[in-house]
């Protein structure tokens, strides 16, 4: 079939299933047709529309690094009709993917600098793509630090990778859970992400900060980064608004005049500060 239909997804085969928490799952997808795989590439920060035929489409960032080619991963929480249907898929099942859409993190412009990642809860998946992208090009960057928090220990995603990151000598991982979310054997921090960030006070000199989390976390994290001396043009985030098409047409993801799906999802804190309070 001709690919002149912009709404037509690639057919994908579920190649792997991994449970991250009690309600968060990662799917690894491979292209059902070799010619689709051959013509496909993406960059860190881009997103797509994942679909189960009969249930509908859902928007997520691509969760794996473009340095690991040949497959796509998405991590999602079971929340509604489509994510429930995605969760019901098994290895070998067929689903749809449209993408990649949106702009990218300008990784090349960060070469030679340190990178500080700050993520909350289910917002680690969009950032995992960038973290692995940086780790796979480790000699291009100075210090790499990840600050990651979730409501409870049980809500931390990618536990195997967190263990790996914690053990790597070439990066620093700070984990935290909200007060009351700790278990007796929890050895990470206890506190909200902005508080833990302020206490850790990572140096801002020659450092890029990448922040991803719910709107309320962004609201409290940006001022902390201001106080730590980060220039707003060196602070990046990836925004999510409800989307349907991903193509700049369906009309719902805009914040003021900015369409997240086309001009984003990656923005600097300086750009976010200029947006009206509608996100």
């Amino acid at each position: 079939m001709a690919r002149d239909n912009i709404y037509l997804p690639y057919l994908m085969k579920v190649d792997g299933v991994r449970d991250e928490t009690r309600d968060v799952r990662t799917l690894r997808l491979k292209f059902a047709r070799d010619e689709d795989a051959a013509g496909f590439s993406f960059k860190a920060g881009q997103f797509g529309e994942y679909s189960v035929f009969g249930a509908g489409e859902c928007t997520f960032c691509i969760a794996n690094s473009p340095t690991r080619a040949g497959y796509i991963e998405c991590t999602f929480r079971k929340a509604g009709r489509v994510t429930k249907a995605l969760r019901d898929l098994e290895v070998g099942d067929t689903m749809g993917f449209r993408g990649p859409y949106g702009n990218v993190f300008p990784l090349e412009s960060w070469y030679g600098k340190s990178v500080l990642f700050i993520a909350g809860g289910i917002a680690l998946p969009p950032m995992r793509c960038v973290i692995w992208n940086c780790l796979d090009l480790r000699d291009k960057f100075k210090d790499i630090t990840v600050i990651y928090g979730a409501r409870t220990v049980g809500d931390l995603v990618y536990k195997d990778e967190l263990r790996e990151w914690g053990e790597r000598p070439d990066m620093k991982l700070i984990q935290t859970v909200d007060p009351g979310g700790e278990t007796p054997d929890w050895r990470g921090q206890i506190g909200f992400v902005p508080t833990v960030l302020e206490k850790a006070a990572p140096p801002s000199a020659d450092t890029i900060a990448v922040v991803c989390g719910p709107p309320i976390m962004l609201k409290f994290t940006f001022p902390v980064l201001d106080r730590l001396g980060f220039a707003r043009t060196d602070v990046y985030t990836t925004m999510e608004n409800r989307m349907k098409c991903g193509l700049g047409k369906c009309g719902r993801c805009n914040v003021g005049a900015i369409y997240i799906c086309k001009e984003g999802p990656v923005f600097t804190a300086e750009q976010v500060a200029r947006m009206p309070a509608e996100y």
């Binding site: 709404y7 679909s51 035929f53 009969g54 509908g56 489409e57 349907k244 098409c245 369906c250 009309g251």
Partner: peptide, 19 residues
């Protein structure tokens, strides 16, 4: 006005994705 939704309609055998 042009805003639209994308919705699947069908049964266990198949169906259509609609704008």
């Amino acid at each position: 006005c042009y805003c639209f939704d994308i919705v699947d309609e069908g049964d266990i055998h198949g169906g259509q994705r609609c704008k």
